[in-house]
Design a protein around this nucleic acid. Structure first.
Ligand SMILES: [Mn+2]
Ligand SMILES: [Mn+2]
Ligand SMILES: [Mn+2]
Ligand SMILES: [Mn+2]
Lengths: 228, 228
DNA sequence: GTATATTGTTAGACGCATCTAACAAAATTA
DNA sequence: TAATTTTGTTAGATGCGTCTAACAATATAC
Protein backbone atom coordinates (compact mmCIF):
# COMPACT_ATOMS: atom_id res chain seq x y z
CA UNK A 1 0.00 0.00 0.00
CA UNK A 2 2.33 2.76 1.24
CA UNK A 3 6.01 2.57 0.36
CA UNK A 4 8.67 2.30 3.04
CA UNK A 5 9.57 5.90 2.31
CA UNK A 6 6.00 7.12 2.67
CA UNK A 7 5.78 5.22 5.95
CA UNK A 8 8.77 7.09 7.30
CA UNK A 9 7.14 10.42 6.50
CA UNK A 10 3.92 9.34 8.19
CA UNK A 11 5.77 8.25 11.31
CA UNK A 12 7.61 11.55 11.50
CA UNK A 13 4.40 13.53 11.03
CA UNK A 14 2.86 11.56 13.88
CA UNK A 15 5.84 11.80 16.20
CA UNK A 16 6.71 15.45 15.74
CA UNK A 17 3.18 16.86 15.69
CA UNK A 18 2.58 19.73 18.12
CA UNK A 19 -0.52 20.02 20.32
CA UNK A 20 -2.58 21.01 17.27
CA UNK A 21 -1.25 17.97 15.43
CA UNK A 22 0.73 20.17 13.07
CA UNK A 23 4.29 20.02 11.75
CA UNK A 24 6.12 22.56 9.58
CA UNK A 25 7.91 21.66 6.40
CA UNK A 26 11.12 22.90 8.00
CA UNK A 27 10.79 20.65 11.05
CA UNK A 28 9.99 17.60 8.99
CA UNK A 29 12.88 18.39 6.72
CA UNK A 30 15.28 18.60 9.65
CA UNK A 31 14.02 15.53 11.50
CA UNK A 32 14.11 13.36 8.41
CA UNK A 33 17.30 14.93 7.09
CA UNK A 34 15.63 15.49 3.75
CA UNK A 35 15.67 18.86 2.00
CA UNK A 36 12.57 21.06 2.10
CA UNK A 37 11.63 20.83 -1.60
CA UNK A 38 11.60 17.06 -1.33
CA UNK A 39 9.34 17.25 1.70
CA UNK A 40 6.97 19.63 -0.10
CA UNK A 41 6.58 17.28 -3.02
CA UNK A 42 6.03 14.28 -0.77
CA UNK A 43 3.35 16.23 1.11
CA UNK A 44 1.55 16.81 -2.16
CA UNK A 45 1.73 13.11 -2.89
CA UNK A 46 0.50 12.07 0.57
CA UNK A 47 -2.24 14.65 0.23
CA UNK A 48 -3.55 13.08 -2.99
CA UNK A 49 -3.50 9.74 -1.16
CA UNK A 50 -5.68 11.24 1.55
CA UNK A 51 -3.13 10.73 4.29
CA UNK A 52 -2.22 14.35 4.89
CA UNK A 53 -3.97 17.69 4.91
CA UNK A 54 -1.75 20.03 2.92
CA UNK A 55 -2.21 23.66 1.85
CA UNK A 56 0.67 25.75 0.52
CA UNK A 57 2.47 27.73 3.22
CA UNK A 58 0.35 26.17 5.96
CA UNK A 59 1.59 23.67 8.53
CA UNK A 60 0.93 20.00 7.75
CA UNK A 61 -1.55 17.75 9.53
CA UNK A 62 -2.25 14.05 9.26
CA UNK A 63 -5.80 13.10 8.29
CA UNK A 64 -7.60 10.45 10.37
CA UNK A 65 -6.51 7.92 7.77
CA UNK A 66 -2.90 9.09 7.94
CA UNK A 67 -2.93 9.07 11.73
CA UNK A 68 -4.18 5.52 11.75
CA UNK A 69 -1.53 4.39 9.27
CA UNK A 70 1.19 6.07 11.32
CA UNK A 71 -0.10 4.63 14.58
CA UNK A 72 0.01 1.12 13.17
CA UNK A 73 3.62 1.56 12.08
CA UNK A 74 4.54 2.80 15.55
CA UNK A 75 2.65 -0.11 17.05
CA UNK A 76 4.78 -2.50 15.01
CA UNK A 77 7.94 -0.69 16.07
CA UNK A 78 7.15 -0.79 19.76
CA UNK A 79 5.83 -4.35 19.80
CA UNK A 80 9.04 -5.42 18.10
CA UNK A 81 11.18 -3.62 20.68
CA UNK A 82 9.25 -5.26 23.50
CA UNK A 83 9.46 -8.66 21.87
CA UNK A 84 13.21 -8.39 21.37
CA UNK A 85 13.74 -7.46 25.01
CA UNK A 86 11.24 -9.81 26.64
CA UNK A 87 11.48 -12.87 24.42
CA UNK A 88 14.90 -12.71 22.84
CA UNK A 89 17.05 -11.29 25.59
CA UNK A 90 18.16 -8.04 23.97
CA UNK A 91 19.02 -5.01 26.09
CA UNK A 92 16.78 -1.95 25.73
CA UNK A 93 19.72 -0.10 24.22
CA UNK A 94 19.98 -2.49 21.26
CA UNK A 95 16.45 -2.79 19.94
CA UNK A 96 15.60 0.52 18.30
CA UNK A 97 17.64 0.04 15.14
CA UNK A 98 16.19 -3.41 14.55
CA UNK A 99 12.66 -2.13 15.15
CA UNK A 100 13.28 0.68 12.64
CA UNK A 101 13.56 -2.01 10.00
CA UNK A 102 10.95 -4.45 11.26
CA UNK A 103 8.26 -1.79 11.52
CA UNK A 104 7.95 -1.91 7.73
CA UNK A 105 7.29 -5.64 7.54
CA UNK A 106 3.86 -6.28 6.00
CA UNK A 107 2.33 -9.03 8.10
CA UNK A 108 -0.41 -8.23 10.59
CA UNK A 109 -0.12 -11.85 11.79
CA UNK A 110 3.47 -11.44 12.90
CA UNK A 111 2.74 -8.46 15.11
CA UNK A 112 -0.53 -9.88 16.41
CA UNK A 113 1.44 -12.93 17.47
CA UNK A 114 4.05 -10.81 19.25
CA UNK A 115 1.26 -8.94 20.99
CA UNK A 116 -0.26 -12.21 22.13
CA UNK A 117 2.99 -13.79 23.28
CA UNK A 118 3.77 -10.61 25.23
CA UNK A 119 0.30 -10.67 26.75
CA UNK A 120 -0.80 -7.37 25.18
CA UNK A 121 1.78 -5.02 26.62
CA UNK A 122 0.81 -1.39 27.18
CA UNK A 123 4.34 0.03 26.87
CA UNK A 124 7.55 -0.65 25.04
CA UNK A 125 10.92 -1.13 26.78
CA UNK A 126 11.44 2.64 26.82
CA UNK A 127 8.09 3.32 28.47
CA UNK A 128 6.40 4.58 25.31
CA UNK A 129 2.77 3.52 24.93
CA UNK A 130 1.93 0.91 22.28
CA UNK A 131 -0.90 2.02 19.97
CA UNK A 132 -3.82 -0.39 19.57
CA UNK A 133 -4.62 -2.21 16.32
CA UNK A 134 -6.40 0.90 15.04
CA UNK A 135 -3.35 3.03 15.64
CA UNK A 136 -4.94 4.77 18.62
CA UNK A 137 -2.63 5.58 21.49
CA UNK A 138 -3.72 7.00 24.80
CA UNK A 139 -1.04 9.27 25.97
CA UNK A 140 -0.11 9.91 29.60
CA UNK A 141 1.71 13.20 29.83
CA UNK A 142 4.43 12.48 32.37
CA UNK A 143 6.58 15.41 33.55
CA UNK A 144 10.32 15.44 32.97
CA UNK A 145 12.54 14.76 35.96
CA UNK A 146 14.07 18.19 35.29
CA UNK A 147 10.71 19.80 36.13
CA UNK A 148 10.44 18.12 39.53
CA UNK A 149 11.13 19.76 42.89
CA UNK A 150 13.57 18.82 45.65
CA UNK A 151 12.03 16.19 47.91
CA UNK A 152 9.89 14.65 45.16
CA UNK A 153 9.75 10.90 45.12
CA UNK A 154 9.34 9.65 41.53
CA UNK A 155 9.19 6.51 39.43
CA UNK A 156 11.03 6.42 36.10
CA UNK A 157 8.15 5.98 33.65
CA UNK A 158 9.78 6.49 30.27
CA UNK A 159 12.82 7.80 28.45
CA UNK A 160 12.47 10.24 25.57
CA UNK A 161 15.59 9.11 23.77
CA UNK A 162 16.35 5.57 22.63
CA UNK A 163 19.93 6.03 21.47
CA UNK A 164 22.26 3.24 22.52
CA UNK A 165 24.62 5.83 23.99
CA UNK A 166 22.05 7.34 26.30
CA UNK A 167 20.60 4.00 27.41
CA UNK A 168 24.06 2.56 28.07
CA UNK A 169 24.72 5.62 30.23
CA UNK A 170 21.62 4.73 32.26
CA UNK A 171 22.65 1.07 32.41
CA UNK A 172 26.00 2.02 33.91
CA UNK A 173 24.14 3.88 36.67
CA UNK A 174 21.65 1.02 37.18
CA UNK A 175 18.81 3.30 36.21
CA UNK A 176 15.94 1.31 34.74
CA UNK A 177 12.28 1.79 33.99
CA UNK A 178 10.30 1.73 37.26
CA UNK A 179 13.33 2.65 39.35
CA UNK A 180 12.14 4.86 42.23
CA UNK A 181 14.23 7.93 42.94
CA UNK A 182 14.19 10.80 45.37
CA UNK A 183 15.27 14.23 44.25
CA UNK A 184 17.89 15.23 46.85
CA UNK A 185 18.96 18.62 45.51
CA UNK A 186 19.33 20.81 42.43
CA UNK A 187 22.54 22.65 41.68
CA UNK A 188 21.48 26.20 40.79
CA UNK A 189 24.56 26.81 38.68
CA UNK A 190 23.92 24.23 35.95
CA UNK A 191 20.59 22.73 37.01
CA UNK A 192 22.20 19.35 37.50
CA UNK A 193 20.35 17.14 39.97
CA UNK A 194 21.38 14.89 42.77
CA UNK A 195 19.09 11.90 43.15
CA UNK A 196 19.11 8.85 45.39
CA UNK A 197 17.84 5.39 44.45
CA UNK A 198 18.61 1.74 45.18
CA UNK A 199 21.78 1.76 47.26
CA UNK A 200 22.99 4.96 45.60
CA UNK A 201 22.51 7.89 48.00
CA UNK A 202 23.69 10.65 45.66
CA UNK A 203 23.99 10.21 41.95
CA UNK A 204 24.45 13.37 39.88
CA UNK A 205 22.46 13.79 36.66
CA UNK A 206 23.09 16.68 34.27
CA UNK A 207 20.19 18.73 32.93
CA UNK A 208 20.70 17.04 29.56
CA UNK A 209 19.94 13.74 31.24
CA UNK A 210 17.13 14.81 33.57
CA UNK A 211 15.30 16.34 30.61
CA UNK A 212 15.19 12.96 28.92
CA UNK A 213 13.66 11.11 31.87
CA UNK A 214 9.87 11.12 32.19
CA UNK A 215 8.64 10.34 35.66
CA UNK A 216 5.51 9.67 37.63
CA UNK A 217 5.55 11.71 40.85
CA UNK A 218 4.74 9.40 43.76
CA UNK A 219 4.98 11.94 46.56
CA UNK A 220 5.98 15.55 46.97
CA UNK A 221 7.08 17.67 49.97
CA UNK A 222 4.69 20.56 49.25
CA UNK A 223 1.76 18.27 48.61
CA UNK A 224 -1.13 20.65 49.20
CA UNK A 225 0.57 24.00 48.76
CA UNK A 226 0.61 26.55 45.97
CA UNK A 227 3.73 28.56 45.22
CA UNK A 228 3.74 31.72 47.47
CA UNK B 1 25.88 -2.25 1.49
CA UNK B 2 23.70 -4.03 -1.12
CA UNK B 3 20.22 -2.73 -1.79
CA UNK B 4 17.15 -4.86 -1.21
CA UNK B 5 16.82 -5.19 -4.98
CA UNK B 6 20.40 -6.31 -5.43
CA UNK B 7 19.87 -8.84 -2.66
CA UNK B 8 16.94 -10.35 -4.51
CA UNK B 9 19.05 -10.81 -7.64
CA UNK B 10 21.83 -12.44 -5.59
CA UNK B 11 19.40 -14.82 -3.96
CA UNK B 12 17.93 -15.80 -7.33
CA UNK B 13 21.39 -16.34 -8.81
CA UNK B 14 22.21 -18.60 -5.88
CA UNK B 15 18.95 -20.52 -5.92
CA UNK B 16 18.62 -21.13 -9.64
CA UNK B 17 22.24 -21.91 -10.41
CA UNK B 18 22.76 -25.16 -12.32
CA UNK B 19 25.49 -27.70 -11.46
CA UNK B 20 28.11 -25.35 -12.94
CA UNK B 21 26.76 -22.53 -10.81
CA UNK B 22 25.45 -20.75 -13.89
CA UNK B 23 22.16 -19.05 -14.71
CA UNK B 24 21.03 -17.60 -18.04
CA UNK B 25 19.67 -14.09 -18.41
CA UNK B 26 16.41 -15.59 -19.63
CA UNK B 27 15.99 -17.82 -16.58
CA UNK B 28 16.73 -15.02 -14.15
CA UNK B 29 14.36 -12.78 -16.03
CA UNK B 30 11.55 -15.34 -15.78
CA UNK B 31 12.14 -16.29 -12.16
CA UNK B 32 12.28 -12.68 -10.99
CA UNK B 33 9.56 -11.57 -13.40
CA UNK B 34 11.79 -8.77 -14.62
CA UNK B 35 12.45 -8.15 -18.30
CA UNK B 36 15.74 -9.29 -19.82
CA UNK B 37 17.21 -5.86 -20.54
CA UNK B 38 16.76 -4.95 -16.89
CA UNK B 39 18.50 -8.13 -15.83
CA UNK B 40 21.40 -7.47 -18.21
CA UNK B 41 21.97 -4.01 -16.77
CA UNK B 42 21.79 -5.27 -13.19
CA UNK B 43 24.34 -7.96 -14.05
CA UNK B 44 26.71 -5.27 -15.24
CA UNK B 45 26.19 -3.42 -12.00
CA UNK B 46 26.72 -6.48 -9.82
CA UNK B 47 29.76 -7.29 -11.91
CA UNK B 48 31.38 -3.93 -11.15
CA UNK B 49 30.65 -4.61 -7.48
CA UNK B 50 32.53 -7.88 -7.75
CA UNK B 51 29.51 -9.99 -6.89
CA UNK B 52 28.96 -11.59 -10.27
CA UNK B 53 31.04 -12.86 -13.15
CA UNK B 54 29.49 -11.44 -16.29
CA UNK B 55 30.55 -11.63 -19.92
CA UNK B 56 28.21 -10.69 -22.76
CA UNK B 57 26.23 -13.62 -24.14
CA UNK B 58 27.69 -15.97 -21.51
CA UNK B 59 25.76 -17.47 -18.63
CA UNK B 60 26.11 -15.66 -15.31
CA UNK B 61 27.97 -16.94 -12.26
CA UNK B 62 28.27 -15.61 -8.74
CA UNK B 63 31.79 -14.82 -7.55
CA UNK B 64 32.91 -16.18 -4.16
CA UNK B 65 31.95 -12.80 -2.69
CA UNK B 66 28.53 -12.91 -4.33
CA UNK B 67 27.96 -16.49 -3.23
CA UNK B 68 28.76 -15.56 0.35
CA UNK B 69 26.42 -12.56 0.27
CA UNK B 70 23.62 -14.69 -1.19
CA UNK B 71 24.21 -17.48 1.32
CA UNK B 72 23.90 -15.07 4.21
CA UNK B 73 20.59 -13.75 2.91
CA UNK B 74 19.28 -17.30 2.56
CA UNK B 75 20.56 -18.05 6.06
CA UNK B 76 18.52 -15.14 7.40
CA UNK B 77 15.46 -16.32 5.47
CA UNK B 78 15.63 -19.87 6.74
CA UNK B 79 16.50 -19.00 10.34
CA UNK B 80 13.50 -16.70 10.34
CA UNK B 81 11.21 -19.42 9.03
CA UNK B 82 12.46 -21.81 11.68
CA UNK B 83 12.12 -19.22 14.42
CA UNK B 84 8.54 -18.39 13.41
CA UNK B 85 7.56 -22.06 13.48
CA UNK B 86 9.47 -23.18 16.56
CA UNK B 87 9.22 -20.12 18.80
CA UNK B 88 6.15 -18.26 17.64
CA UNK B 89 3.77 -21.05 16.74
CA UNK B 90 3.32 -20.37 13.02
CA UNK B 91 2.52 -23.20 10.62
CA UNK B 92 5.13 -24.04 7.98
CA UNK B 93 2.69 -22.82 5.32
CA UNK B 94 2.63 -19.28 6.71
CA UNK B 95 6.26 -18.36 7.19
CA UNK B 96 7.74 -17.91 3.74
CA UNK B 97 6.19 -14.54 2.97
CA UNK B 98 7.29 -13.11 6.30
CA UNK B 99 10.80 -14.47 5.81
CA UNK B 100 10.94 -12.88 2.35
CA UNK B 101 10.77 -9.53 4.10
CA UNK B 102 12.84 -10.29 7.17
CA UNK B 103 15.74 -11.67 5.15
CA UNK B 104 16.62 -8.08 4.24
CA UNK B 105 16.88 -6.84 7.83
CA UNK B 106 20.39 -5.60 8.55
CA UNK B 107 21.24 -6.92 11.99
CA UNK B 108 23.62 -9.84 12.37
CA UNK B 109 22.74 -9.84 16.09
CA UNK B 110 19.08 -10.60 15.45
CA UNK B 111 19.79 -13.67 13.37
CA UNK B 112 22.63 -14.86 15.61
CA UNK B 113 20.18 -14.72 18.47
CA UNK B 114 17.57 -16.71 16.55
CA UNK B 115 20.26 -19.25 15.73
CA UNK B 116 21.18 -19.53 19.40
CA UNK B 117 17.63 -19.75 20.71
CA UNK B 118 16.94 -22.45 18.12
CA UNK B 119 20.09 -24.30 19.16
CA UNK B 120 21.80 -23.93 15.79
CA UNK B 121 19.32 -25.70 13.55
CA UNK B 122 20.61 -27.45 10.43
CA UNK B 123 17.37 -27.18 8.45
CA UNK B 124 14.43 -24.86 8.03
CA UNK B 125 10.79 -25.96 8.43
CA UNK B 126 10.73 -27.10 4.80
CA UNK B 127 13.84 -29.25 5.16
CA UNK B 128 16.15 -26.83 3.35
CA UNK B 129 19.64 -26.57 4.85
CA UNK B 130 20.57 -23.37 6.68
CA UNK B 131 23.84 -21.86 5.44
CA UNK B 132 26.48 -21.08 8.08
CA UNK B 133 27.56 -17.56 9.00
CA UNK B 134 29.87 -17.49 5.98
CA UNK B 135 27.04 -18.35 3.65
CA UNK B 136 28.35 -21.90 3.12
CA UNK B 137 25.72 -24.57 2.80
CA UNK B 138 26.41 -28.27 2.56
CA UNK B 139 23.87 -29.74 0.32
CA UNK B 140 22.49 -33.27 0.58
CA UNK B 141 21.07 -34.28 -2.76
CA UNK B 142 17.91 -36.14 -1.81
CA UNK B 143 15.97 -37.89 -4.60
CA UNK B 144 12.41 -36.91 -5.38
CA UNK B 145 9.68 -39.27 -4.26
CA UNK B 146 8.71 -39.49 -7.93
CA UNK B 147 12.06 -41.18 -8.67
CA UNK B 148 11.59 -43.92 -6.08
CA UNK B 149 10.59 -47.50 -6.77
CA UNK B 150 7.66 -49.54 -5.53
CA UNK B 151 8.50 -51.06 -2.15
CA UNK B 152 10.85 -48.25 -1.12
CA UNK B 153 10.50 -47.09 2.44
CA UNK B 154 11.34 -43.39 2.67
CA UNK B 155 11.42 -40.46 5.08
CA UNK B 156 10.13 -37.06 3.92
CA UNK B 157 13.29 -34.96 4.11
CA UNK B 158 12.28 -31.72 2.40
CA UNK B 159 9.73 -30.04 0.16
CA UNK B 160 10.83 -28.10 -2.91
CA UNK B 161 7.92 -25.69 -2.83
CA UNK B 162 6.94 -23.45 0.06
CA UNK B 163 3.68 -22.09 -1.27
CA UNK B 164 0.90 -21.93 1.29
CA UNK B 165 -1.35 -23.86 -1.11
CA UNK B 166 0.98 -26.80 -1.48
CA UNK B 167 1.82 -27.00 2.22
CA UNK B 168 -1.84 -26.79 3.20
CA UNK B 169 -2.45 -29.66 0.82
CA UNK B 170 0.15 -31.70 2.73
CA UNK B 171 -1.32 -30.61 6.06
CA UNK B 172 -4.72 -31.92 5.04
CA UNK B 173 -3.11 -35.31 4.38
CA UNK B 174 -1.09 -35.20 7.62
CA UNK B 175 2.13 -35.33 5.64
CA UNK B 176 4.93 -33.67 7.57
CA UNK B 177 8.68 -33.53 7.49
CA UNK B 178 10.13 -36.83 8.78
CA UNK B 179 6.94 -38.73 8.03
CA UNK B 180 7.89 -42.26 6.95
CA UNK B 181 6.10 -43.61 3.92
CA UNK B 182 6.13 -46.78 1.88
CA UNK B 183 5.64 -46.65 -1.84
CA UNK B 184 2.81 -49.09 -2.50
CA UNK B 185 2.39 -48.71 -6.25
CA UNK B 186 2.75 -46.44 -9.25
CA UNK B 187 -0.05 -45.90 -11.73
CA UNK B 188 1.55 -46.23 -15.18
CA UNK B 189 -1.09 -44.07 -16.83
CA UNK B 190 -0.34 -40.77 -15.04
CA UNK B 191 2.58 -41.73 -12.80
CA UNK B 192 0.54 -40.99 -9.72
CA UNK B 193 1.70 -42.89 -6.64
CA UNK B 194 -0.03 -44.75 -3.88
CA UNK B 195 1.80 -44.49 -0.59
CA UNK B 196 1.06 -45.65 2.94
CA UNK B 197 2.03 -43.86 6.15
CA UNK B 198 0.71 -43.36 9.68
CA UNK B 199 -2.72 -44.94 9.73
CA UNK B 200 -3.26 -44.23 6.04
CA UNK B 201 -2.79 -47.42 4.02
CA UNK B 202 -3.25 -45.93 0.55
CA UNK B 203 -3.03 -42.25 -0.12
CA UNK B 204 -2.77 -41.18 -3.76
CA UNK B 205 -0.27 -38.50 -4.75
CA UNK B 206 -0.17 -37.05 -8.24
CA UNK B 207 3.13 -36.71 -10.10
CA UNK B 208 2.95 -32.98 -9.54
CA UNK B 209 3.05 -33.64 -5.81
CA UNK B 210 5.56 -36.51 -5.71
CA UNK B 211 8.01 -34.39 -7.71
CA UNK B 212 7.97 -31.79 -4.97
CA UNK B 213 8.78 -34.18 -2.15
CA UNK B 214 12.45 -34.95 -1.45
CA UNK B 215 13.02 -38.12 0.47
CA UNK B 216 15.69 -40.15 2.15
CA UNK B 217 15.41 -43.79 1.14
CA UNK B 218 15.47 -45.94 4.27
CA UNK B 219 15.11 -49.32 2.63
CA UNK B 220 14.51 -50.67 -0.83
CA UNK B 221 13.21 -54.01 -2.16
CA UNK B 222 16.01 -54.47 -4.70
CA UNK B 223 18.73 -53.43 -2.26
CA UNK B 224 21.77 -55.07 -3.87
CA UNK B 225 20.55 -55.46 -7.41
CA UNK B 226 21.24 -53.62 -10.64
CA UNK B 227 18.53 -53.17 -13.22
CA UNK B 228 18.46 -56.25 -15.52
C1' DG C 1 25.32 -24.48 -44.52
C1' DT C 2 21.66 -21.51 -44.77
C1' DA C 3 17.24 -20.16 -42.68
C1' DT C 4 14.73 -19.64 -38.53
C1' DA C 5 14.01 -19.35 -33.77
C1' DT C 6 15.76 -18.14 -29.46
C1' DT C 7 18.36 -15.53 -26.44
C1' DG C 8 20.72 -11.33 -25.22
C1' DT C 9 22.15 -6.35 -25.80
C1' DT C 10 21.64 -1.39 -26.88
C1' DA C 11 19.12 2.82 -26.94
C1' DG C 12 15.98 5.64 -25.14
C1' DA C 13 12.02 6.63 -22.04
C1' DC C 14 9.66 6.74 -17.50
C1' DG C 15 8.37 7.05 -12.39
C1' DC C 16 10.19 7.70 -7.88
C1' DA C 17 12.71 10.05 -4.44
C1' DT C 18 16.20 12.90 -4.07
C1' DC C 19 19.04 17.24 -4.88
C1' DT C 20 20.47 22.48 -5.99
C1' DA C 21 19.39 27.05 -7.61
C1' DA C 22 16.26 30.54 -8.00
C1' DC C 23 12.31 32.77 -6.61
C1' DA C 24 8.19 33.93 -3.52
C1' DA C 25 5.55 34.31 0.64
C1' DA C 26 5.32 34.98 5.53
C1' DA C 27 7.29 36.37 9.76
C1' DT C 28 10.35 39.23 12.27
C1' DT C 29 12.96 43.31 13.15
C1' DA C 30 13.98 47.93 12.81
C1' DT D 1 5.73 50.60 7.26
C1' DA D 2 9.82 49.21 5.16
C1' DA D 3 13.82 46.19 5.35
C1' DT D 4 15.52 41.85 6.49
C1' DT D 5 15.33 37.11 7.76
C1' DT D 6 13.12 32.84 7.67
C1' DT D 7 10.32 29.54 5.63
C1' DG D 8 8.34 27.40 1.64
C1' DT D 9 7.64 26.58 -3.47
C1' DT D 10 8.92 25.99 -8.37
C1' DA D 11 11.92 24.45 -11.92
C1' DG D 12 15.04 21.53 -13.57
C1' DA D 13 18.69 17.86 -12.90
C1' DT D 14 20.31 13.25 -11.13
C1' DG D 15 20.55 8.12 -9.93
C1' DC D 16 18.07 3.88 -9.55
C1' DG D 17 15.38 0.31 -11.27
C1' DT D 18 12.18 -0.49 -14.48
C1' DC D 19 10.12 -0.74 -19.28
C1' DT D 20 9.54 -1.15 -24.80
C1' DA D 21 11.40 -1.15 -29.38
C1' DA D 22 14.93 -2.26 -32.26
C1' DC D 23 18.88 -4.73 -33.31
C1' DA D 24 22.58 -8.48 -32.78
C1' DA D 25 24.50 -12.85 -31.52
C1' DT D 26 23.90 -17.63 -30.73
C1' DA D 27 21.54 -21.94 -31.10
C1' DT D 28 18.42 -24.95 -33.64
C1' DA D 29 16.14 -26.80 -37.62
C1' DC D 30 16.04 -27.92 -42.16
MN1 LIG E 1 12.40 2.89 19.05
MN1 LIG F 1 10.87 2.60 22.08
MN1 LIG G 1 11.02 -19.69 2.22
MN1 LIG H 1 12.01 -22.67 3.59
Amino acid sequence: MNSLIEENYLKALFSYANDQGEVSVKDLSEKLDIKMPTVTSMMKKLSTKGLVQYTSYKPIKLTAKGRKAAGIIIRKHRLTEMYLVEKMGFGWENVHEIAEQMEHVKSPDLFDRMDELLDHPKHDPHGSPIPDKNGKVDWINYPKLSECKVGDRVRLAAVVNSSADFLSFLNKRELQLDTEMELVSVEPFDNSMIVSYHDKPNETLSLLVSEKLLVEVISSLDSNQQSP
